[in-house]
Amino acid sequence: MRLASFTGILIVYILTSCNTISNHETSAPVAEVDGQILTIDELQKAIPKNLSKNDSLAFTQNYISRWVKETLLLRKAELNLSPEEKDVNQILKDYRASLLINKYQQKLLLAKHSPLITHNEIEDYYNQMSENFILNEDVIQGIFIKIPLNAPKLSELKKWYKSDKPEDLVALEEYCYQNAQNFDNFLDKWVSVKTISDLMPSPIPNNPNFLKYNKFYETSDSLSHYMVSFRDYHKTDEVAPIQYVSDKIKAILLNKKRIEFIQNLEEELYQEGLKQKVIKFY
C-alpha cells in the first residue's frame, strides 16, 4: 500500500505538473500482473478532467487497486474456465450489434423524431385512461405560510390568507416575501397533503371529512406559526386531477411515440431491403 501510495503521488505529480508528457513517460508502467501492464498513458486517459490534486490522487490509487484486482480475477478466469466457457465471441457479437443499433436509433430519434406532446394529446389520453390515475393520497390546492410568532400585523395576515379577493392576495404575497420564513402559493397546482403536513409540527388531521368541512388549518411551535388555506381538494381513491398527472402522461406518450417511431423505422428499412433486394430467404 505504501508503494501504491507513492506511485499514485508520483503519477499525479507527472500528470498535473506539466502540460506535455514525453512518450517515454506515458508508456512507463504503473502496475503489472503476470505480464499484464497498466501504463501511465492508460491511467491518464481514465482520470476525469478538472480534478484537484487530492482528488486525482484518490482516484489514481482507487483505479490502480481496481485494475490489479480485476486483472487477477481475469487471470484466474483464463486458467480455470474451459475453452467452451471462454468462448464469448457470440456474446460480444450480439452486444456490439445491440450497441450499434441503439446508437443509430438514438441518432435518428434526435434528428427526425419530434418530442412535442400537445395539451390535447394529454387531455385525450387522460379522458380515455382516467381509471389508471386513481389517487393514493389526498391532494390540495392552496397557500402555505410559516411566519415568526413575533411578526407584525398577524391579524391582517390571517385576513389576507383567508380571502379570495385578488387585492388581498397581492397584499399577502408582498407581506410574506418580507416577513415569512416559508411561503408557498400553490393555487395553480396540486400538492399532496403529506407534503404540506411534513412542513409543520402538527400534521393536517387525517380525518376523511376534514377537507370537506375545513378551509383552513393553523398550528404553532415555540418559534413559528403555520397556516394553510385549502382552496380545492381531491380525496384518496378519486380520479386524480389532470394537472397532477400531466407530467406522468407526457412521459407515457413520449415513450409510446418513441416506440412507434422505432417500429416504423424497422418496417421502412425492411421494405427498403426488399426493394433493393439485399434480403434473401432460403
Results as ranks from 00 to 15, higher is better:
residue 226 Y to H: 11
residue 264 N to M: 01
residue 163 S to W: 09
residue 141 Q to V: 06
residue 103 K to T: 05
residue 98 S to C: 05
residue 28 A to T: 13
residue 241 P to V: 07
residue 138 D to T: 01
residue 197 S to C: 12
residue 95 Y to V: 00
residue 211 L to M: 09
residue 36 Q to Y: 11
residue 275 K to M: 01
residue 251 A to C: 04
residue 257 K to A: 13
residue 42 E to V: 05
residue 252 I to K: 11
residue 204 I to L: 08
residue 232 D to I: 05
residue 154 L to I: 15
residue 12 V to P: 01
residue 117 I to R: 00
residue 209 N to F: 14
residue 108 L to Y: 04
residue 53 K to E: 10
residue 252 I to H: 12
residue 221 D to R: 10
residue 9 I to K: 15
residue 200 M to F: 11
residue 206 N to F: 11
residue 274 L to K: 15
residue 259 I to S: 01
residue 264 N to L: 06
residue 86 K to H: 10
residue 244 Y to G: 10
residue 266 E to G: 01
residue 139 V to C: 03
residue 245 V to C: 12
residue 105 Q to L: 08
residue 103 K to F: 11
residue 92 L to A: 07
residue 245 V to P: 12
residue 194 K to T: 14
residue 177 Y to A: 02
residue 245 V to L: 09
residue 65 S to K: 14
residue 130 S to K: 15
residue 133 F to V: 13
residue 132 N to P: 01
residue 160 W to G: 04
residue 87 D to R: 02
residue 43 L to T: 07
residue 37 I to G: 10
residue 231 R to D: 08
residue 179 N to Y: 15
residue 254 L to S: 13
residue 13 Y to A: 05
residue 65 S to W: 10
residue 187 L to Q: 13
residue 30 V to S: 07
residue 18 C to E: 14
residue 227 M to R: 06
residue 123 E to Q: 00
residue 273 G to D: 02
residue 257 K to C: 06
residue 263 Q to G: 00
residue 125 Y to I: 00
residue 257 K to R: 14
residue 76 K to Y: 09
residue 222 S to N: 15
residue 188 D to E: 15
residue 242 I to F: 04
residue 176 C to T: 10
residue 208 P to W: 08
residue 74 L to M: 04
residue 121 E to Y: 03
residue 133 F to Q: 04
residue 194 K to S: 14
residue 30 V to L: 08
residue 106 Q to M: 09
residue 41 D to Q: 14
residue 58 A to V: 11
residue 246 S to L: 10
residue 191 V to D: 03
residue 17 S to M: 04
residue 56 S to Y: 01
residue 116 L to H: 10
residue 195 T to P: 00
residue 256 K to N: 15
residue 6 F to M: 11
residue 59 F to T: 01
residue 11 I to P: 07
residue 54 N to T: 14
residue 265 L to R: 09
residue 104 Y to I: 10
residue 140 I to G: 02
residue 131 E to V: 12
residue 131 E to T: 02
residue 225 H to Q: 15
residue 3 L to V: 07
residue 166 P to D: 09
residue 33 V to I: 06
residue 249 I to R: 05
residue 269 L to V: 11
residue 230 F to M: 02
residue 50 N to I: 04
residue 105 Q to V: 14
residue 104 Y to F: 12
residue 48 P to H: 10
residue 139 V to H: 00
residue 88 V to M: 12
residue 272 E to R: 09
residue 76 K to S: 12
residue 40 I to F: 07
residue 29 P to R: 05
residue 53 K to D: 12
residue 44 Q to E: 06
residue 77 A to E: 08
residue 96 R to F: 00
residue 240 A to R: 06
residue 192 S to D: 02
residue 99 L to D: 02
residue 234 H to V: 05
residue 200 M to H: 07
residue 197 S to W: 08
residue 206 N to T: 11
residue 148 P to R: 01
residue 238 E to K: 04
residue 186 F to Y: 15
residue 239 V to W: 02
residue 36 Q to A: 13
residue 88 V to A: 11
residue 240 A to C: 04
residue 65 S to V: 06
residue 20 T to V: 08
residue 105 Q to P: 03
residue 196 I to V: 14
residue 170 V to T: 07
residue 179 N to E: 15
residue 240 A to I: 04
residue 260 E to K: 10
residue 89 N to Y: 08
residue 209 N to V: 08
residue 192 S to A: 14
residue 50 N to E: 09
residue 226 Y to R: 03
residue 63 Y to S: 12
residue 17 S to W: 06
residue 280 K to G: 07
residue 137 E to D: 04
residue 257 K to M: 11
residue 100 L to P: 03
residue 44 Q to P: 03
residue 50 N to L: 11
residue 122 I to H: 04
